[in-house]
Design a protein around this nucleic acid. Structure first.
Lengths: 227, 227
DNA sequence: CAGTATCCATTTCGATACTG
DNA sequence: CAGTATCGAAATGGATACTG
């Protein structure tokens, strides 16, 4: 394993990048995660020891820098790491266009809510606190109810009721919400079909789609759409 | 192994593409190889059974088409496969810019000569037959001498003396010629340093660099150059 | 030309539990 | 918070030889 025995730069890049999980960790770092446990939330099926190992490999390759603070450790991409965004972008576009639709084994409520919560548009939200309650009836008990609590400082994700007043409640199956998030079905269409149910005052209901920024790849053109 | 359990399109693309050798096979197909044994020459360290397996996986994923002719089998990229050129391109550029210089274990005379021979510029060459003899003194006996025989039909690679009149003879270590090929050192500089030695009439000697097109990534800007 | 067949050493990863 | 420790099951793929 390891080297391909080729001088070709594609092969030498893949020596590092074809290791399982590696580019997903890079994707998380590109998305802005800095702490070990934040990274974990972006790759929830990855074991912590494997994450450690990958971070070390990426560090040794000059892609990641590790900073030890007084009471926290942060990881950051180097210039080389930041340039991997071209690779991740190309992969994401290709995956969106050509990979078959998502199946049950691709669905993960923890990842979905983690992605959703870190992409809320704080600017678009009203001043003060906004609390979005999500209910995924078909998820496992522990992953069924979520709260995104946003103020001008940022957005937090809770899996316990924080007790605040709810601005809006969103109910959908894990599959529906996932497919809306990645752009496979449109928000409005899911609402009209009754697959996405919103409990909120009318003005909130209208605003809601602008608060939730969908996946970066949601707007990618799909050649197979409707086939 | 296999699924990452993520709906993220980067993850779904990597489910297919992070398997060892896969993108190098795609690179070969993008470079124009159509036949099994041509593909093998582009990935000389890959076992034939593994190549078979990867081709099957790529076929099942809709990336490759397999055509059985009367006495030959050809593989061709589908539209989905052709679009992987964005991914391969991004990887090659990144690898060129950020992967450390090549080491001995990256050198492979078979691959080098295969790459060189399929990138000669037939248009730039004189009419009739052109025969380039390569001598790599430090390669293993069987991989030390090569002949590229080009006419207006195409270029062939031989590892036995075809017996034709030699237009030019090029002598360099495997490392030097590899580094020139991938653009790590310039042709002229290698010649001036005496690392690349050419036996040919003066007008051929001047023309030679235009006949040999270097690696597609040779011209990529290297941020670490000279550090 | 275009693959199969075989075989095992090695790796790799996932799951889980635990720690300063 | 930021990791280690441990373990075994699974698979991966490299080497080599062979075939219609």
């Amino acid at each position: 394993m390891g080297s391909y025995g080729q001088f070709c730069p594609v092969a030498r890049a893949m020596e590092l990048l074809d290791e399982r999980w590696t580019l997903l960790v890079v994707r998380e770092l590109l998305a802005g995660s800095r702490h070990f446990n934040d990274l974990r939330r972006g790759v929830p099926r990855m074991s912590p020891s494997l994450l450690t190992k990958r971070l070390r490999t990426l560090h040794d390759a000059g892609v990641v820098e590790r900073h030890e603070g007084p009471n926290s450790v942060t990881y950051e991409l180097t210039a080389a790491g930041r340039e991997l965004h071209h690779v991740v972008e190309a992969l994401g576009i290709w995956g969106t266009r050509w990979m078959p639709e998502i199946g049950d084994h691709h669905l993960d409520p923890r990842l979905l809510m983690w992605d959703l919560h870190r992409n809320v548009d704080l600017e678009a939200m009203p001043d003060g606190r906004t609390v979005l309650e999500f209910h995924l009836p078909d998820a496992k008990p522990r992953a069924r109810d979520w709260w995104v609590v946003a103020d001008d400082e940022g957005a937090d994700l809770c899996d316990d009721d924080p007790g605040y007043e709810i601005t809006a409640r969103i109910e959908a199956s894990l599959e529906t919400l996932s497919r809306v998030w990645i752009g496979e079905i449109a928000w409005d269409r899911a609402v009209r079909a009754g697959d996405l149910r919103i409990s909120a005052p009318d003005h909130v209901r209208r605003q809601l789609p602008t608060w939730l920024t969908l996946s970066h790849f949601a707007s990618v053109d799909r050649p197979m759409a409707g086939v």
